[in-house]
Simulated scan of single mutants.
Amino acid sequence: MTLLAPAAPASTLKSIAGRSGSKAAASSDTCTTSSAPTSRPLSVESSGLFDPGGYQLARSSAEIGQSPLVLGISGFAPTFLVGLKAVRDDHGPSLAALGGRRLTGFAIVRFIEDGDWYADCPIVLDFDGVQVEICHSKFDELSIGWNTIDTTAAISGWEWFEMTPAWSGADERLEPFIGQELREVALLEWRPSRRDVAADTLAVEFVFGTGRFHIANALDENIIEVGDAHPAFVRHLLDRGAQPD
């Protein structure tokens, strides 16, 4: 995922032009690697533009970094974490606390011209007024935000590009879960028997009475998958009263 600041020059078109294939697929899209858990915050160039070849990262695990405007999305200030422990420590209790709430809405970004899902952008889920914002990046990074993105605001700064991104509440994978009560939330850790580039990647799973879906890392973008996860995923159920193992 290449995160672009608004009003990017034409030279950055190549970072979006690759949205053919899974980026342009409206039906599916993300999974990743990690070693020692660490946060990897964004660092913005003084010019206000992200590196067209991939956004800049500060590698210090002690730093917590956020960008005030990413992809022209109002309120999107991602803090990317790596590894099960980091994500569970920071977000496990809050994710578990969603249990018992209904999924009352969602928002993803689509291009107005053709309806294609722009899978680099965060997926926003609303549980009875509590908004969780999930975004995967690179091979091992996951950002989970809470109540910061304004999906009623237009996505700005894309006048230079031939397509127009906008928030959408339409998605055939998520629509069947609207109105259903959330029963469980789990972190899924990709642990194949033969280690691959996606080993230790995390996905976030939401379980309802009639089914489940998870949001995973499709190696540098998001993917939404419905149903049971691949057996190579190790499931870590999030429980507000349980101590991390």
Rank of each mutant, 00 (worst) to 15 (best):
A153D: 12
V197P: 00
T2C: 10
S67Q: 04
G145N: 10
S46F: 05
G53A: 10
G18H: 00
A203W: 01
T32Q: 13
P37A: 11
I112W: 00
L103Y: 03
G157H: 12
K14I: 02
T32D: 10
L3N: 11
G48Q: 05
G211T: 01
S74W: 04
D228A: 15
P176W: 03
E141H: 12
W146N: 01
V130P: 00
L13W: 12
V82F: 02
P41T: 11
H236L: 08
G54Y: 12
K23P: 00
S137H: 07
L188M: 09
D140N: 13
G21E: 02
T30D: 14
R110T: 12
Y118M: 02
Y118K: 02
A218N: 10
V82Y: 03
N222E: 02
A199L: 01
F208Y: 13
V204W: 12
E159I: 05
H214K: 01
F206D: 01
A242L: 09
E133C: 05
P52I: 03
T152W: 04
E133W: 05
S28P: 00
A62W: 11
E159W: 06
Y118H: 07
W160N: 15
R191Q: 14
D228Y: 03
I112T: 15
V87N: 14
G179L: 13
L69W: 00
A86S: 08
T104E: 13
P68L: 12
E141Y: 05
T12P: 00
S67P: 00
L71Q: 15
Q131P: 00
A25H: 12
C135E: 08
F50M: 08
A17D: 15
S11M: 05
L238P: 04
T104F: 08
G145S: 03
G211L: 10
Y55Q: 14
D128P: 03
H230V: 07
W190C: 03
E184H: 14
P41K: 07
F50S: 07
Y55M: 02
L142C: 03
S60L: 04
S20V: 02
D140M: 03
I223V: 14
S60F: 09
T33A: 13
A198F: 12
A26C: 00
W158F: 13
A77R: 15
L49I: 01
P176T: 09
L3R: 14
